[in-house]
Amino acid sequence: MKEIYKIKIEPLTAVHIGSGNSLLPIDYTLEKPNNSTEKHYVKFSSDKIINSILESGTAQQKQELQNVSDLNDINALAKFFRKYFYLGVEYDSRVTKDFINLYSSKINSGLFENSLEVNQILHNGAKPYIPGSSIKGAVRTAILNQALMDLPQESYDELLEVADKEKQQDSKKSGRYEKKIQNKALLMLSVKGFDDAKLDPFRCIEISDCEFSARNQLVARMENAKIDKFKKELCSESMQIIAESIPGKLADCKTASGFTIRINEDLQNIELPNGFCINKQIDLQEIISACNFFFKSQFNEEYKKFYKDAYESVDKIFELKKIIDSIPENSETEFLLRLGRWSQIEYVTFENNFRNPKTPTKKGREMPFGTSRTVLNYDGQYLPMGWCKCSVEN
């Protein structure tokens, strides 16, 4: 039997699910489309522009294309595409004032001599979307963490000892011990002749993708921020990352979408020849409870460490805290998720004792992790990435 639930998802802060592509000014421009009074980021297709000119362009356009092709100059080609961007528009996005200023100061210095690379998000045509696999990954982390916390102290200590030994032996930090933790926490066993996938309790859960309107997009710059406890402010360090995103409520975009959760009960009741069965049953209420406990507790730790004592550039983070605090941990209909890139390692791994992050080394010494936050600069206000509020609709 399948239980099907329709879930409304509302981004609170910007969400970035990367496509793996980096865009340069040969792929986009800043213009005022459709008589807009403000500049927008316009993503265009150079192939569409070329095909349009070759098929129905004027003699002058065709000659310009021929001339710029003969030059073998990437900067000249980029200027040509930006001139005729309207022939190949794929989608456009709002931009922050910060990015407009950066673009204006850098665009004339040469395509590969400036820092205008933009990290693209996933799109279905012109519409950005969050894949169901990203949502399921966040849900899985929350449930596994809850199962780990619910273990008897003896079993917890046993797993902690395994994790500590694995950390010391695994110089590349591949996280090999995590499978052992998962098996123990979910009461799974290795059964000869059965694929691990068949013994995975999460295979009973299917989560669909969720699309957003093509209008609901934002391009902004990321900053690496640390708290200065003496000045009582978040101090931004040098960091040049620009990204497309699905903006959230706190980035002045009240957008929402929906996805479905399908739970197949039959896949949770597997009986094997030796009598073993998976006795970890996952239902909607467990998903809601685990997500609220995990994401609310992690947010509260992050808030105390980085944002609580700051006076400037954090007004929207205070608003975010009010929204998160308003969701009861024992809610039956609302739950939190943190999705996508720059969600911070604390939100995609087990609780702190089992965390095994990859950190850089400096002068032969391993650097600590969790000392800074990657935040979006929304016209002078800092916003942590990826926060979403979900509500059960039926």
Rank of each mutant, 00 (worst) to 15 (best):
K2C: 04
K6H: 15
L12R: 11
I17V: 02
I17W: 00
T29G: 11
N34E: 11
K43W: 05
F44N: 06
K48Y: 12
S52T: 06
G57T: 01
G57P: 00
K62F: 01
E64V: 01
I74V: 12
L77N: 12
K79N: 11
Y84A: 13
K97Y: 11
I100C: 03
S115V: 00
I121W: 01
A126W: 11
K136V: 00
A138Y: 01
R140P: 00
A142T: 02
N145R: 12
Q146E: 11
P152G: 06
Q153C: 01
S155Y: 05
E161R: 05
K167L: 09
Q168T: 07
Q168W: 06
I181M: 02
N183S: 04
S190D: 15
K198L: 10
C204P: 15
I205S: 09
E206P: 04
A214D: 10
V219T: 02
E223T: 09
A225K: 02
A225N: 04
K232M: 01
K232H: 08
E233N: 14
S236M: 13
S245M: 10
I246P: 02
I246Y: 01
K254E: 02
I263E: 10
E265S: 07
N269L: 14
K280E: 14
K280C: 10
K280R: 09
D283Q: 11
F294D: 06
S297C: 08
Y303L: 09
K304T: 06
F306R: 08
S313P: 12
V314P: 13
V314D: 13
K316C: 10
I324C: 13
I327D: 07
N330V: 14
S331L: 12
T333Q: 08
L336K: 07
R355H: 09
N356P: 14
T361A: 06
M367G: 06
Y378Q: 03
Q381Y: 10
W387V: 08
K389N: 11
